[in-house]
């Protein structure tokens, strides 16, 4: 009845059987909290983000943090060797994680990371794309949709201009990036379902 945590945001996939559920949960929380804080720090640096209402800043971050983390940690997935590196530095093969109980979500994250990394974006491009992922006016609970929409449009225009400038012969990259947004939503939904199931167990 050994328990495993297959989310790469853990330090390790192995759970100490001596630990209580509460201790396991707290350890997981200690592991992902710094990553969430980094997402907030990143959001603060997006020009115009701090001008949104505090309610909308929180709503965007609550809804989009997982998607931002998927983009930021895409490099944890090693496509060539089919491995995933956890935050604690331990590396696991996808087969090993599957044997530990990982399902469609991790496979889908792996596929997403593979496609995103294949675009060969620069750090600046990746950063701007991440801002576009976060500032989405159709997240639930947004009170001032017009302000978020205006910021979203500005960021999308900036991303298009940067991609066009850096990849003049690869006009499809911008379209491919925009098509990643629904993929991220779908991963987010799968993740939410897993979280609910996890809490139940």
């Amino acid at each position: 009845n050994r328990m495993y945590l297959v989310c790469p945001m853990n330090m390790s996939a192995y759970v100490d059987p001596q630990k209580s559920g509460q201790e396991v949960w707290e350890e997981f929380s200690h592991s992902f909290t710094p990553a969430v804080r980094e997402v907030v720090e990143f959001a603060k640096k997006i020009p115009g983000f701090r001008d949104l209402s505090q309610h909308d800043q929180v709503s965007l971050l609550k809804a989009g943090t997982f998607e931002v983390l998927v983009v930021r940690f895409a490099s944890l997935f090693d496509v060539q060797n089919r491995t995933v590196t956890f935050l604690g530095g331990r590396k696991y093969s996808m087969d090993a994680l599957r044997a530990m109980g990982a399902g469609d979500l991790l496979n889908s994250m792996f596929d997403f990371s593979e496609k995103l990394m294949s675009l060969g974006l620069s750090e600046e491009e990746m950063s701007l794309f991440t801002a576009v992922v976060l500032v989405s006016a159709d997240r639930s609970g947004i009170e001032n949709v017009n302000s978020v929409e205006a910021l979203q449009e500005t960021l999308i225009r900036a991303l298009r201009s940067l991609i066009t400038k850096n990849h003049p012969n690869e006009s499809a990259i911008f379209t491919k990036l925009l098509l990643k947004l629904p993929d991220l939503r779908s991963l987010n939904n799968m993740h939410s379902e897993q979280l609910l199931a996890f809490k139940v167990h």
Partner: peptide, 27 residues
């Protein structure tokens, strides 16, 4: 009402990280 993000305590972490900055600005 099931709120997976909040089950992780995400809102609390986000609010504290955002507020920290507000306090810094007030100082």
């Amino acid at each position: 009402f099931n709120d997976p993000a909040n089950n992780l305590g995400l809102e609390d972490i986000i609010r504290k990280a955002l507020m920290g900055n507000l306090e810094e600005r007030q100082e």
